[in-house]
């Protein structure tokens, strides 16, 4: 290394637009992958390249998308939340139980479900932050707890025939040309938009990135690290509960065995969307793209009609590995810690 001045000039000369930066490469790869898969589907299968096929990606994966947005924040902060799938299941059961068996007005029940989910996440956040416990262990315990309590409330699936919920579930927003979106999909899009804004342009979001980069530095820079960690898990709990509401509308039932393994799909979507598992780098919009890639794999297999649906899992597994490797290669070159 020479003196500072030459290094400074060369750095200025090396200014690159955002899409040429190395950190963006995994995200670009995801985008290219999505377009390529969609193109391949269009060539292989008749009727694949219609707007509704792509809108269905959103409709069928709305809950995954919402959970994954919350998970993005957790992972950006360098943590993990394994409880989200169970919280989704718990939320479906609680909502169905309150509305079907106790005659609660749906909106009040939904409000309670959201509050419980948020509080549950915040509780885990406090444990993680205050007692320096591993997020993995705390949220694993949370996962057992949430699914266990859901089973306590009702062992059997509770079907929903409450008229208001049923009508909202069947509501479709026409987009012209015969295509349409469900309420759940709209909620998911709103969550993505809010999440992107929160991550990119709020001090909460930026503190999350800073913590993921270096928690001790963030502390010395005077950022509110402790409060932010708790809020991150509260946010993830809120997203999981909201996804639970959307899932209830999607299935029109509450069941403790809903959304098994959803937390792992969410983590996969976040990573494939370009967020680094170690934290500190990634985008909420990337997560949306990750969810769409997962949905597209499933759709392709459905269109094929002959492949076992387990191929979805195999492909997701392979993609996940490939993306982790890709991140390692590109991050190492760009950032020397």
């Amino acid at each position: 290394m020479n003196a500072v001045a030459p290094a400074a000039t060369s750095a200025a000369a090396g200014r690159r637009p955002w899409w040429r930066r190395r950190a963006q490469v995994p995200l670009l790869v995801t985008l290219v992958l999505f377009v390529a898969m969609a193109g391949a589907g269009g060539v292989l299968y008749h009727g694949f390249l219609t707007p509704q096929v792509f809108l269905n990606l959103l409709i069928d994966n709305a809950f995954l998308c919402i959970v994954a947005v919350g998970m993005t924040f957790v992972i950006l902060a360098g943590g993990i939340d394994l409880s989200v799938g169970a919280v989704v299941a718990f939320s479906t059961v609680l909502l169905a139980e309150l509305v079907q068996r106790h005659g609660w007005p749906p909106l009040a029940a939904i409000a309670l479900v959201l509050a419980v989910g948020t509080g549950f996440g915040a509780g885990m956040g406090v444990l993680i932050q205050r007692f320096r416990l591993q997020p993995f262990v705390v949220t694993l315990a949370g996962m057992f707890l949430a699914r266990g309590v859901a089973t306590l409330i009702s062992v059997d699936s509770i079907d929903i025939d409450q008229p208001w919920l049923a009508s909202v579930a069947n509501l479709r927003l026409p987009l012209g040309g015969g295509s349409m979106l469900s309420v759940g999909a709209l909620v998911a899009l709103a969550v993505v938009a809010a999440g992107a804004l929160l991550a990119g342009a709020s001090s909460f979001g930026r503190t999350v990135y800073a913590i993921g980069g270096s928690e001790s530095s963030a502390r010395l820079m005077g950022l509110p690290v402790d409060a932010t960690v708790v809020r991150v898990y509260a946010l993830s709990g809120f997203c999981a509960a909201l996804a639970g509401v959307v899932y209830t509308l999607y299935m029109l039932s509450g069941y403790s065995q809903h959304a098994l393994g959803l937390e792992l799909d969410a983590i996969a979507a976040v990573v494939i969307g370009g967020t680094v598992l170690a934290g500190g780098s990634g985008y909420v919009l990337g997560t949306l793209l990750g969810v769409l890639v997962l949905g597209l794999i499933q759709t392709l297999i459905v269109f094929d009609g002959e492949l076992s649906s387990w191929w979805t899992r195999i492909v997701i597994g392979a993609l996940l590995l490939a993306f982790c490797l890709l991140q390692r290669l590109f991050r190492r070159k760009e950032i020397k810690p």
């Binding site: 930026r206 990135y209 800073a210 980069g213 270096s214 530095s217 820079m221 950032i335 810690p337």
Partner: peptide, 10 residues
Amino acid sequence: NLCPNLSVAE
């Protein structure tokens, strides 16, 4: 004690 993952400006 700064965050290497954030931009210089940030």
